[in-house]
């Protein structure tokens, strides 16, 4: 019964009630055989990081449609550093300006998937990121 399904935490952070997208992504990843933990709405960066560590997920995916990416990601990465977590893959999804995409990638976000990303591409990209990281 050995199995190594990719584990993903999908999170909504802050005052952002738009969860249609994240639910579609959750189902997409489920149908690709991944275990998807969903945080629910209105979480804080701290709650998300604690959940990511306890759930030992391969990938933390943060969905943002409220424009707070430049506030949220510095907090998330500071908390990860504080907790000595350095093998977690952090990705982002949602709608944001191009210059913000560049900025959060600089902070350490491995991948930003905007609103027009096809589901197949999301699956393939995540699988590739986990394969590149290697066993843990």
């Amino acid at each position: 019964m050995a199995s190594t399904a990719i584990r993903v935490l999908l999170a909504k952070v802050g005052l952002d009630g738009h969860d249609r997208g994240i639910k579609v992504v959750a189902r997409t990843l489920r149908d690709a055989g991944m275990d998807v933990v969903y945080s629910g709405l209105h979480r804080t960066p701290e709650e998300v990081v604690i959940a990511a560590v306890q759930e030992d997920v391969d990938i933390l995916g943060v969905s943002l449609l409220s424009g707070v990416q430049l506030t949220v990601f510095p907090k998330i990465f500071a908390l990860l550093k504080e907790k000595n977590v350095n093998d977690l893959i952090v990705v982002a999804g949602g709608v944001m300006p191009d210059e913000d995409v560049v900025a959060i990638k600089k902070m350490g976000v491995a991948l930003v998937m905007l609103q027009d990303t096809p589901p197949k591409e999301i699956i393939a990209s995540l699988q590739q990121l986990v394969a590149e990281r290697g066993p843990r």
């Binding site: 199995s3 399904a5 959750a26 189902r27 990843l29 489920r30 149908d31 690709a32 055989g33 991944m34 275990d35 998807v36 933990v37 969903y38 945080s39 629910g40 979480r43 701290e46 709650e47 604690i50 959940a51 306890q54 759930e55």
Partner: peptide, 26 residues
């Protein structure tokens, strides 16, 4: 069918997350 899952029990346990005396695993 796919072997995948959506683990949503945490959503209802949000009050506990920040407490270091509680560990939740889905």
């Amino acid at each position: 069918y796919s072997g995948g899952s959506i683990l949503g029990d945490r959503i209802r346990m949000a009050d506990l997350v920040l407490d270091p005396g509680v560990f939740i695993r889905s």
